[in-house]
Design a protein around this nucleic acid. Structure first.
Lengths: 186, 186
DNA sequence: GTCTATATCGCGATAGAC
DNA sequence: GTCTATCGCGATATAGAC
């Protein structure tokens, strides 16, 4: 049992995932997660602020992808095309991590508390994108609108992708933007 | 102390609002809310499933407004214009209930747990709108996209309205849709 | 690491309202 | 009288303080 923080954290994540999939989120206690990971409950709460957060480390990576992707887009590109390109750059990451996303979706589907947390994470991510776009020179309104709308298309595409898994995510994304364009201009 | 459930519930809401504004959400216990309302803590939890929910009765009215507004829009109107009209119909309600919204925003601003709940409520409302639009004949994708996007514009307009209170909400809404149109078609 | 506050929920009994 | 809201008591788990 390595005491090194990183490994304990990883074991906690794995233990939580197993237990949640076995019994469902509500039927598992933090004490049980800690026990299966071979640490004390106290240690659990040193790594994660609450019972839900152990499931959302993937979300951290998502924000990194977004930040990096947007940073790689030329500064003279206006907000909307910049975000379209950012979405395109994130898609491969999402495709490569499909299973993690599906697992989370499965567990969260039965747990309102996790849906809340997920909604909050998405809101925070949109706020981050808004800030990044504003830094690139967009007005506050424009930044907020572009962030919300483009991310909305991506979120929608991901959902469609879950029900139609054989179509590449990028196709769902493209279809979403096309549809949006048709709707708004009509 | 009347036994009628409605009054107890109303007293609980009022008591919670007062206490949260006095001391902040985290510094108030459910026992204190119940005490000020003249009931037991157990009774609190019979009316509200958790400590946060007591603040979100207004949200229930919001969903009613949305449902009614959309129901009043002719069925042969396509989803996007139908939602634009729906938003216009909701705006007066929002303007009439500005104070309640401001109060909630004030309390929630300092409380991540309430921001989570608010994000979740918004997600549920968007899901409701999606369903309503689908019932009117929109495809699943179209319904979801229209719901998310139009509500996004409204949410944004409300935020702008809070910082620029002298401009009518409707102007913020119109500005949002105009800006969106410019962005998407560019 | 231990200790504790407090949110949340189950159950049986009671008491207004109709 | 029947309902349903409320009470009183108790149990457990999360989360934070010391």
């Amino acid at each position: 049992m390595p005491r090194s923080g990183k490994e304990a954290r990883a074991r906690l994540e794995a233990a939580a995932l197993e237990l949640f999939l076995e019994r469902g989120f509500d039927a598992v206690t933090t004490a049980e997660i800690a026990a299966r990971a071979g640490v004390t409950e106290r240690t659990y709460f040193r790594h994660f602020p609450d019972k839900r957060e152990v499931l959302f480390d993937g979300e951290r990576r998502l924000t990194e992808w977004v930040t990096e992707a947007l940073a790689s887009v030329p500064l003279d590109m206006p907000p909307w095309p910049a975000m379209r390109r950012t979405v395109d750059l994130i898609v491969p990451h999402l495709e490569a991590n499909r299973e993690a996303g599906d697992r989370l979706a499965t567990i969260a589907a039965a747990t309102p508390a996790l849906q809340e947390r997920a909604a909050a994470k998405e809101a925070r991510l949109i706020a981050l994108i808004t800030d990044l776009l504003a830094t690139r020179g967009a007005s506050a309104d424009e930044a907020a609108l572009v962030a919300r709308t483009t991310w909305g298309v991506l979120a929608l595409a991901i959902r469609a992708w879950r029900t139609a898994p054989n179509t590449p995510l990028q196709s769902h994304v493209d279809r979403g933007f096309t549809l949006l364009g048709r709707l708004v201009s009509a």
